[in-house]
């Protein structure tokens, strides 16, 4: 026996499958949508379908793309010889904001995480190997997250995928936030920053 009308049940169930939304939130959103004007609900429905129809993943780097390739892959002014490997498209947005990187990207669409059933085969790692074989690349920067899963993914790519190629492989440094005071840094970050110190003369 269901507590609500069938269509409401279905919507709650669908919403509940989204990341970060539990049964209570799903219920709250469903009831909100039940109350709003038809136009507003339609706008949300349209936004979802239009996005699904027009946006997908870039054939080359698996970033978000409107069309076959993403804006960065299309841009002729970018440096073809450097690839920055990230876990998610949102990581590209973060690195782009720095303006410090002018090369290309490769999005793995996740990190190796056996607890979630994600092995190397579920990621765009094979595609990375194909790109490196086909394109003229001199450096790969591994920008996966500095946690266990990210480090393991970087180690997998470095030792299992990139070993046969004559290219530089680098890893993002971890250290202190700029503009902050030393005393506010957590011990782990400060410890890593000390290990990665650089000569000034």
């Amino acid at each position: 026996m269901s507590a609500y009308a069938k269509p409401v049940e279905i919507l709650i169930d669908e919403l509940g499958r989204l990341p970060g939304i539990g049964p209570k939130s799903a219920q709250r959103i469903a009831f909100h949508l039940l109350k709003v004007d038809r136009v507003d609900a339609q706008r949300l429905a349209d936004a979802i379908t239009v996005m699904k129809d027009t946006v997908s993943f870039c054939d080359r780097c698996f970033n978000i793309a409107e069309g076959a390739n993403c804006e960065i892959c299309i841009d002729p002014k970018r440096d073809d010889s450097v690839i920055c490997v990230v876990e998610e498209p949102k990581d590209i947005a973060a690195i782009e904001k720095t303006g410090a990187f002018r090369g290309r990207y490769h999005v793995l669409q996740g990190a190796i995480n056996m607890l979630e059933g994600i092995g190397p085969e579920q990621l765009k790692i094979k595609e990375l190997a194909l790109r490196i074989a086909a394109e003229d690349i001199s450096e790969v920067i591994l920008c996966t997250n500095p946690n266990i899963e990210g480090e393991t993914t970087a180690a997998f790519i470095a030792t299992k995928i990139l070993a046969p190629f004559q290219i530089n492989v680098t890893r993002l440094a971890s250290g202190l936030p700029v503009g902050g005071d030393l005393e506010y840094a957590d011990e782990l970050t400060l410890g890593r920053a000390l290990e990665g110190r650089q000569a000034v003369r």
């Binding site: 190796i112 056996m114 092995g119 190397p120 085969e121 266990i148 480090e151 393991t152 180690a155 997998f156 030792t159 299992k160």
Partner: peptide, 13 residues
């Protein structure tokens, strides 16, 4: 083979 090489990396960690 894929499972073995994934295990190699976890073993390193």
């Amino acid at each position: 083979e894929m499972t073995r090489s994934t295990l190699d990396v976890w073993d390193m960690q």
